[in-house]
């Protein structure tokens, strides 16, 4: 083989290796609580009521150069719901709504990620909640990424999605049947 034929082949190999190396695996930093899954819904049509899921876990693959290759999987302990009022939480966990005894976990598995204008991402995937699996689309945006002060590397995202409770087999509690989720995600590169 001459030098001429080797060089493009080497370059291609090098490119592939580099490409793979940057599509890194991240674990969502729930241990340090640098991630949260918050919800809010309308109260009586007059105001917002908010809460959070305290326990969840997940991971994602991310490469800023190839956002369409992003994959994200999250599992939520529905029991960990906290709206800062135990009796209300008890009611939301009951079989009137989330029925956590029957359906203790919710999960989201992305199926495709599409970059759109203004650095935004459309994260499509299947959400299983209350035993019902439905496709949802999360409006997401990378917040930033880089080395942290403690020798690690982190990447952060934010996302929002509006769920219709009736779609997931729950009654309409709020006038609009809608629950707005806010996802604040920070991952630590493995």
């Amino acid at each position: 083989m001459s030098k001429k034929t080797i060089s493009p082949f080497l370059l291609a190999t090098l490119f592939l290796v580099v490409g793979n190396a940057t599509a890194a695996d991240y674990v969502i930093d729930t241990e340090g609580a640098h991630a949260s899954i918050n919800f809010k819904f309308n109260h009586l049509g007059y105001s917002w009521l908010s809460g959070t899921y305290k326990t969840f876990s997940g991971n994602f693959k991310w490469d800023a150069a190839k956002p369409e290759a992003t994959v994200i999987n999250v599992e939520v302990d529905v029991n960990s719901l906290d709206s800062n009022h135990a009796e209300r939480d008890k009611h939301i966990r009951s079989d009137d709504f989330l029925d956590v005894k029957k359906y203790p976990t919710a999960k989201f598995d992305s199926t495709s990620v599409t970059p759109i204008k203004d650095n935004k991402l459309l994260v499509k995937g299947n959400l299983t909640l209350h035993g019902v699996t439905k496709e949802i689309v999360i409006d997401a945006r990378p917040v930033g990424e880089g080395e942290d002060p403690w020798g690690g590397y982190r990447a952060g995202f934010e996302g929002t999605v509006t769920l219709n409770t009736v779609d997931f087999g729950m009654p309409g509690f709020v006038p609009t049947n809608q629950v707005h989720l806010e996802l604040l995600i920070e991952g630590v590169r493995q």
Binding site: N84, H85, A86, E87, D89, K90
Partner: peptide, 8 residues
């Protein structure tokens, strides 16, 4: 214990 579970 129900009513005071959240510290109220």
């Amino acid at each position: 214990l129900i009513s005071t579970a959240d510290g109220r």
